[in-house]
Write a protein that binds this DNA or RNA. Structure first.
Lengths: 232, 232
DNA sequence: CCCTAATTGCTAATTTCTTAGCATTCTGAC
DNA sequence: GTCAGAATGCTAAGAAATTAGCAATTAGGG
C-alpha cells in the first residue's frame, strides 16, 4: 500500500524533464533491495538524494514500547533524503524496502553539481516539497476536526484513486490504522460504519469501493469547507 | 505567539542573499493590515507569493461547528502562498493579520521572472519547504506516539527557544490547545502535571520556563528515539 | 489438500479526551 | 480605582479510543 504522501504529491521523476532525470540517473549508483531489507537507519549522517526507481520504501521509527511506527510509504518515482541535503540533518527515519525495490543513490557532491547546473531540478523539488507539505497539513487539519470514520473514508478514497486496480484498495486494516495513527479496533469500528452505509465492502487484505463517486460525495458532505480545485 | 511551522523552519528572507531579497522587494507591492484584518480567504484563486515583512499571520479555516481552526501562525521573514504557484491551488486557508502587519505581495508573473533568473531563490525555497515538511512530519509522529504532557512540554521548549524574552513563553492555554489540536481542559491538566514536576510556572497569558535544559532533558528522556543533531 | 500465519471480528475493562458548565483571578483601559 | 473582558481552575457526565484478549476466517506455501 501507499499512503498520503505518496498519492498526495507528484513523484519527482515525473516533474523532471527527460534531460535532468537522465543526468541524475547517470550520476547515481543503483542499489537493489529485497523485501524488508534496511536501506538506511535513523541517525545515518551520509547526505545524498535517493530516488525510488521501482518498488516502495517504508519510513518508520521505533516507538516507545518497542513497536514500529510507520510515518509514510513512498512508491515509484518519489525521492527521499532531501533533509540530509537541505537541512543538513541525518536521516530521520529507518527506510525499509517494501517488496523488491531498486533505489538510485546520488551523493551530495554529485547532486550539488547537477542542482547548480540544472535550474529545472530546483523547480521540480520545490513543487514536490510544496505538494507534500500541503498534503500533510491537510491531513493534520483533518485530525483536528473530523471524526475517524470521515478520515478513514477520505483516506480510502484517496488511495483508491491512485490504486493500480481501481474499485478496490489493497491493504490490511492494520495498515490503515498505522496511517491514521489509531488502533486497529477503532479502524474496525469506523470501517463497519462505512460498510453499513454501503460505501465500502470489507474483504481480506482489501477494501472494495463499489462506487467511487458515492464515497467521495459522502466525504465531501461531511467536510466543514469546500474542497479545493486546481486552477486551469 | 508563533507555532511549530514558524519556529521549526528558517524564514525565507534569511535564506536569501541580499540581492535576491532586494529584487523581490522591488517587485512587490506593500500592503499593510490592522490586527484581525483578512489578508485573503480560502478559495481565492489569484496566485502569488507573499512575504511577511513585519507582524504575523494566522492561517485558519472554519470548522464543522462554526469554530475556527488555526493551522499555523507565521512571523517575520516567512513566506506563504507557495501552493498557489507550485501546485496551482487556490489559497487553502483564510489568512488573518495578527497585530499590525506588513505584507509584500508579489504577483505570479513577476515572481516567475525572478524565479527563472535567480537560481538562489529556488534553492532557498527548497530549503524552507523541506524544513517545514520535516517539522510537520515530526509533529505528526509525536501525535501518534507521545502522551499529551510530553507533546506539550516539547512545544513549550521549542517556543521558548525562539521567544523574544527567554525564560518564558507568551501565550494563552487556549492557543496551546489550538496548536496541539486538543481541548483547553486537556491542556490544563497537562500543564498542571508539568508544573507539579517543577518544569514550568503557570501565569496569566504566559508560561515560565525556569530552567530550559531541565525541560528539554525531561522531554528527551521520554522520546522513544534519540533527537537528531544537525551535521557540522 | 492441509496447515500455518495473517487477518478480521468481537468483547470488556480502562483510560483519555471532550463538552458544558461556572467561579475566580488577572490585566489593561478608562 | 473601577470595571469589563480575558484567562485560568475546576467539576462532572458522556463520548471515544486504547489495551488485551480470543475465536473465526482466509490465503498461500508445501
Amino acid at each position: 500500500m501507499a499512503d498520503l504522501l505518496d498519492f498526495g504529491s507528484t513523484p519527482l521523476l515525473s516533474l523532471l524533464p527527460e534531460g535532468v532525470s537522465g543526468r541524475l540517473r547517470a550520476a547515481a549508483s543503483i542499489v537493489e533491495y529485497d523485501d524488508g531489507e534496511t536501506i538506511h537507519s535513523r541517525g545515518d549522517a551520509k547526505p545524498g538524494l535517493s530516488i525510488i526507481r521501482s518498488g516502495a520504501v517504508r519510513f518508520a521509527n521505533p516507538g516507545a514500547d518497542g513497536s514500529y511506527v510507520t510515518t509514510s510509504i513512498l512508491g515509484e518515482g518519489h525521492c527521499f533524503g532531501e533533509a540530509t541535503l537541505f537541512a543538513r540533518l541525518p536521516r530521520a527515519y529507518d527506510a525499509i524496502a517494501e517488496g523488491q525495490t531498486v533505489i538510485e543513490q546520488i551523493t551530495k557532491t554529485r547532486f550539488d553539481r547537477i542542482f547548480n547546473e540544472e535550474p529545472e531540478l530546483a523547480r521540480a523539488l520545490v513543487v514536490a516539497m510544496t505538494q507534500r507539505l500541503y498534503s500533510v497539513l491537510d491531513f493534520l487539519e483533518d485530525v483536528r476536526r473530523l471524526p475517524l470514520d470521515v478520515r478513514t473514508a477520505k483516506l480510502i478514497a484517496g488511495m483508491e484513486r491512485t490504486a493500480k486496480h481501481s474499485g478496490a484498495v489493497e491493504c490490511s486494516q492494520s495498515d490503515l490504522a498505522f496511517t491514521l495513527g489509531v488502533s486497529r479496533v477503532s479502524i474496525g469500528k469506523a470501517l463497519a460504519r462505512l460498510q453499513d452505509e454501503g460505501l465500502i465492502e470489507l474483504g481480506y487484505g482489501r477494501i472494495g469501493v463499489p462506487d467511487r463517486k458515492n464515497l467521495s460525495d459522502w466525504v465531501a458532505a461531511r467536510l466543514p469547507v469546500e474542497p479545493l480545485t486546481r486552477g486551469e
